[in-house]
Design a protein around this nucleic acid. Structure first.
Length: 272
DNA sequence: CTGAGCACCTGAGGGC
DNA sequence: TGCCCTCAGGTGCTCA
């Protein structure tokens, strides 16, 4: 489900609600999601959440003892903060009971998500994040950066954009939308991009991701805001999920190919 | 090192 | 109605 704009939306909603709260009790309803949940039982009770922010598609909540709670929503993860009197939903796996009586509730149908506690290392982040590329909305993600890092890369440009080590947090929806906006064929070898195309890609990525955040992300089927509402960017999608429909610019039938195992919709006329 | 393929898991939707 | 197949916002492993 969630790419950068969706996780950013969740982070912005959660930060004011969770900052300063102390976790008093951990209730587990499944032994594991992507990874085992039992470590939370010893790592979290008594800990106070210092802040909450997003990096790539992860939510990171530094705690008061030099560790951080790291949450990933996988494909179908939903976080709500409500009260335990609301009946537990079928796929809610974890409740974190907070000191004001509210409950952080984690739901994940497919269980590709995860909740883990890691020590905070260099740069205020757990060690694993050192391998991630720049945030696409930061200045570090520049045309020059993209050009240099794509040299000699033979992989399809779409797969390249979806690589967290290149740039963090761009997934299947936004990669398709960004490449359509930039007029670049998703099958194109990354190493053949010109510097001008890299400039255009960076510009389109920034514009589309910012607009998606403004709209509260994209709800296809599972994604929900912390308050249960839905993201409004779906109506703005130009090509994702529209294989066989006419291109919104030129009317040519949109095509779908598999790249890196993911469906990739594009306009064979507008994207070269 | 790179790149491709597959596994993880549940549910929805289409074809028969 | 039911069965079987394919597909879905991600990540991380193995293999060549």
């Amino acid at each position: 489900m969630p790419e950068l704009p969706e996780v950013e939306t969740v982070a912005r909603a959660l930060a004011p609600v969770l900052t300063g709260r102390t976790i008093v009790r951990v209730e587990l309803f499944s032994p594991a999601v992507r990874t085992p949940l039992s470590p939370l039982k010893t790592a979290l009770p008594g800990r106070t959440i210092r802040q909450l922010f997003r990096r790539a598609r992860y939510l990171i909540a530094p705690l008061d003892n030099g560790t951080a709670l790291v949450v990933h929503l996988g494909m179908t993860g939903v976080i709500r903060v409500e009260y335990s009197s609301v009946p537990r939903r079928k796929h809610e796996h974890v409740f974190l009971h907070l000191d004001n009586g509210s409950v952080f509730r984690f739901e994940d149908v497919r269980r590709f998500g995860g909740l883990e506690v890691h020590p905070i290392g260099q740069g205020g982040l757990p060690a694993r994040f050192a391998a991630f590329g720049p945030e696409p909305l930061s200045g570090d993600f520049s045309a020059e950066y993209l050009y240099e890092h794509s040299r000699c890369r033979k992989t399809a440009v779409k797969t390249f954009l979806m690589d967290n080590a290149v740039v963090a947090g761009i997934g299947n929806i936004y990669a398709a939308e960004i490449l359509f906006a930039a007029g670049i064929d998703p099958r194109r070898e990354a190493g053949t991009l010109t510097s001008e195309q890299c400039r255009n890609l960076v510009k389109c990525a920034r514009r589309i991701l910012r607009e998606a955040i403004r709209q509260g992300g994209t709800t296809i089927s599972d994604f929900k805001h912390v308050d249960g509402s839905e993201g409004k960017f779906a109506v703005r999608l130009q090509v994702y999920g529209k294989s066989g429909e006419p291109c919104p610019v030129c009317g040519t039938k949109l095509q779908c190919v598999r790249l890196g195992g993911r469906s990739s919709v594009f306009c064979p006329r507008c994207q070269r």
